[in-house]
Amino acid sequence: MPRKKTKHLFVTATDTDAGKTLVACAIVNILTKARKVAVFKPISAGCDNVSGQLVNHDALQLQQLANCNQPLESVNPVAFEEPIAPHIAAQTLGQKINAVQVTDLFKSLDSFAPDVILTEGAGGWRLPLGGGQFLSDFAKQTEQHVILVVNMKLGCLNHALLSYEAIKRDGLTVVGWVANCIVPMDYQQENITELSQYLDAPLLGVVPNVENAEQASKFLDKDLIEQIASSHEE
């Protein structure tokens, strides 16, 4: 019987604090009903030191919703305590981050035999790793299918279109986008309609300001997400 290929989903956003974790967790919440899902937040900055282990709250949420029994260090292998740009945090500690390192860590998740690996990025699409490399280089190396979270606020049209164009220029496919409505926005629906005309990808949902992933998942199109996550047999 042919083996099904693991689906690679990468959640990025228009900016920091745009709702990547909420949307990523909501998608995991949907997919774990019928699939084995591993999660990956390769880099984080802003962690609590818990008994000598750096614990990132976003990575912890992902770990708790996934169903591959991953240890936290496999979910978030590169973690920094200070909430600053990760490549600067690395520099202050005399460390380096590069795309090959992140790709190798990602490949190690195959040991969990998942149907889907969902990666949550950090910041926006062009997160610097230092040395002229970006987290998007990892996404290219691993041929990710990208889901774009748009923080619906003044300026989001420009941010969303530039992010979308950069992803396409990198040779990757935006398989869907989510309108995340954290704060009230004048003419919100008009802006969503405008983006729908420019982004050649399905709108997966309009998420209001909710408290958790389970609530957010109710505002996502489960059928579309299941379709995106479907793996083709090799």
Rank of each mutant, 00 (worst) to 15 (best):
Q53M: 13
A45P: 05
E165P: 03
D186C: 12
K140H: 05
Q188F: 06
G132I: 07
V78A: 08
G19Q: 10
Y164P: 11
V206N: 13
L65S: 01
V206M: 15
P2S: 07
K4R: 11
V150I: 12
V75M: 14
G52Q: 01
G132E: 05
G46N: 01
I30S: 02
V75N: 14
K5T: 08
Q70I: 06
R3L: 12
K20Y: 09
N29E: 08
P208V: 09
T21V: 05
A66I: 04
S51Q: 13
L109K: 03
I147W: 09
C47H: 04
E190W: 10
N158L: 07
P202A: 07
L118D: 08
V39F: 12
T12S: 13
V28P: 10
A139F: 00
V183G: 02
H145A: 02
V183A: 14
A122Y: 02
G46E: 02
Q91H: 07
Q133R: 05
Q101G: 00
Q53G: 00
A139W: 04
A229S: 06
T119Y: 03
D170G: 05
G205C: 06
V175Q: 00
G155Q: 00
S196T: 14
L105D: 04
S74I: 12
D58M: 12
D115Q: 05
K168R: 05
H87M: 07
A45E: 03
G52R: 01
I147L: 14
T32I: 00
I167R: 07
N151A: 08
S136G: 05
E190Y: 09
Q197H: 13
R126K: 05
L148D: 02
P2A: 06
K41I: 01
I225Y: 04
V102W: 13
Q144S: 09
L204D: 06
L54I: 08
D48I: 02
L105M: 12
H8C: 07
D104R: 15
A34D: 08
L154A: 03
L65E: 00
S217Y: 10
S111E: 11
C181A: 10
I30L: 14
Q227E: 03
S217E: 09
T92W: 10
E190I: 03
K218G: 07
E82S: 11
K107A: 13
F138Q: 12
D200P: 13
V55M: 14
A99T: 12
L172Y: 03
T103P: 13
A229M: 04
S108R: 15
V39Q: 14
H232R: 02
H57Q: 15
R126A: 02
P71G: 09
Q95N: 00
Q64F: 10
Q61T: 05
L224M: 09
L72T: 10
P2M: 11
I182G: 05
A13V: 08
S108K: 15
P208Q: 12
L127A: 06
A66L: 04
V206C: 11
K5R: 13
Q188K: 08
A90H: 01
N76Y: 11
T21R: 00
